[in-house]
């Protein structure tokens, strides 16, 4: 599969590959495996200081039966690699319409999570279970959605490899504490540091889960001097190769650095999200 670049013309900026690849060479000589993973986490989960996107999540079973979740996600970072706040508003399906979900994520301890149930106007804390458990029934875990602490695995740079035409690092990560995978292999773009593919192996060394970044767009934020380009994975798939079940996630209308405030991630906005957030 080719790395495709698509999206609205206004958001597409082809950056000169030459200067960046020179930078990448410099970095390669300096970075160890853990730093590459850390950079990858920052590129994947911490782009910009905040972000808003409309997300379509399709849960597809092995026979092609499809269930669709449509939501708006907002994210605010306190600092790169540190605490984050997430706000998720569900548009579909009907039984969860208008529900909101707020997560205050801390890298080193359990998240705080709340859910708003509109039918009874109730905000409730929900137990922050194992971060490896499924996010709304999908093949993604909470950690897949919001990131896994770099120090939770021992990372080794196996080699550099051209993956689907892209210069990549291949990194092996072995969890320090037992979890549902025993080994993870990650192909990471040397320029953008975005993960291009991840393979998860179980204790029997069998491949059971595969993540792919299928569409990467370059999304611009800011004007003039402040203009920044954020390469963003706008289509990703997590497939359970043992069950054949997969989850496809498409990010639409991604906007960075919209100026969200810490106080926006509040009970008030869970009950009544500003119209500009959800329409």
């Amino acid at each position: 599969m080719k790395k495709t670049i698509c999206g609205f013309a206004a958001f597409i900026f082809i950056v000169s590959g030459l200067t960046l690849s020179v930078q990448a060479k410099d970095k390669e000589s300096l970075l160890n495996a853990a730093q590459i993973i850390e950079n990858s986490q920052l590129a994947f989960y911490y782009q910009g200081t905040d972000m808003k996107a409309n997300v379509v999540m399709e849960l597809i079973d092995k026979d092609g039966g499809k269930r669709v979740r449509v939501m708006t996600i907002l994210r605010l970072d306190r600092a790169q690699g540190e605490n984050q706040k997430y706000f998720i508003y569900f548009h579909k399906p009907g039984d969860v319409r208008r529900m909101t979900f707020m997560i205050w994520k801390y890298p080193l301890k359990d998240d705080d999570r709340w859910i708003f149930i509109p039918a009874i106007d109730l905000i409730k804390r929900i137990a922050a279970d194992d971060k490896r458990s499924s996010f709304v029934g999908s093949d993604f875990t909470y950690e897949d959605i919001s990131g896994r602490d770099v120090d939770s695995d021992a990372h080794t740079l196996l080699r550099s490899e051209v993956f689907q035409g892209i210069d990549s690092y291949l990194i092996q990560s072995l969890p320090l504490e037992p979890t549902e995978y025993a080994k993870r292999l990650s192909w990471i773009d040397k320029i953008t540091f975005l993960p291009l593919k991840e393979e998860y192996y179980d204790a029997q060394e069998e491949l059971f889960r595969v993540f792919t970044s299928d569409v990467i767009e370059k999304i611009a934020a800011g004007e003039g001097e402040d203009k920044k380009i954020f390469p963003t994975v706008t289509k990703r798939i997590m497939k359970n190769v043992k069950t054949g079940h997969r989850t496809k996630v498409i990010y639409k209308s991604v906007i960075y650095n919209i100026g969200l405030k810490d106080t926006d991630f509040s009970e008030r906005h869970m009950r009544r999200p500003p119209r500009s957030w959800i329409r």
Binding site: A127, A128, D129, D130, R132, S133, S134
Partner: peptide
């Protein structure tokens, strides 16, 4: 007191 004992079990 409420707790997830294992995945999707509360």
């Amino acid at each position: 007191y409420q707790r997830q004992i294992w995945e999707d079990f509360t």
